[in-house]
């Protein structure tokens, strides 16, 4: 999936991780929960923080800070878990995603989204579908299909940040 596949104006949920703004299509957001205790899962990649109970179902939680090579999320009053749904061939994947704070739902037209720049961001562009503008800030449209692929979530790999000088 590339930025070209976005052909219509859609609503997007914006949230903050560290000082950066990210966004996902609201269609992929099931609900937003307050931070709750996460049960640690042994033998799993460190960015997979564990599992939580959402009304009787067990849902895995990912810490994008760890996935992107930053410090672990320390829960604050603004910390939220965004429960996302990603359609898969067999079963829809439901995953919780830690965010330092959740902002608002905005409308973005296709022409407002640019392809991710080759250089100059802290983020590996593989996980970024495109870059938009939000209140004079850059906003990263996450490629959740890729980011939350089973291979990505089960393999213990580290270097997600672009290395300098590359």
């Amino acid at each position: 999936m590339t930025v070209d596949t976005i052909t219509q104006t859609d609503q997007y949920l914006t949230f903050k991780i560290d000082e950066e703004y990210f966004t996902v299509n609201v269609r992929n957001v099931r609900e937003i929960l307050e931070y709750t205790k996460i049960t640690k899962m042994p033998d799993a990649p460190h960015f997979m923080r564990g599992i939580i109970n959402v009304r009787g179902s067990v849902i895995p939680v990912i810490d994008l800070r760890l996935k992107f090579g930053m410090q672990e999320t320390v829960p604050k009053s603004s910390t939220r878990i965004i429960v996302m749904e990603i359609a898969r061939e067999v079963k829809t994947l439901v995953i919780g995603c830690l965010a330092d704070s959740v902002k608002e739902v905005i409308e973005i037209a296709p022409d407002q989204i640019e392809p991710p720049p080759e250089m100059g961001t802290r983020w590996k562009k593989d996980y970024i579908l495109g870059v938009g503008k939000y209140q004079e800030e850059f906003i990263m449209l996450l490629d959740i299909k890729k980011l939350f692929s089973t291979a990505e979530l089960t393999t213990i790999d580290q270097p997600v940040l672009e290395e300098e000088g590359q």
Binding site: M41, D43, V58, P60, L93
Partner: peptide, 11 residues
């Protein structure tokens, strides 16, 4: 525990 954790054998 779901697809993501299915490889974790001891659980």
């Amino acid at each position: 525990v779901g697809e993501i954790y299915k490889n974790i054998e001891c659980i």
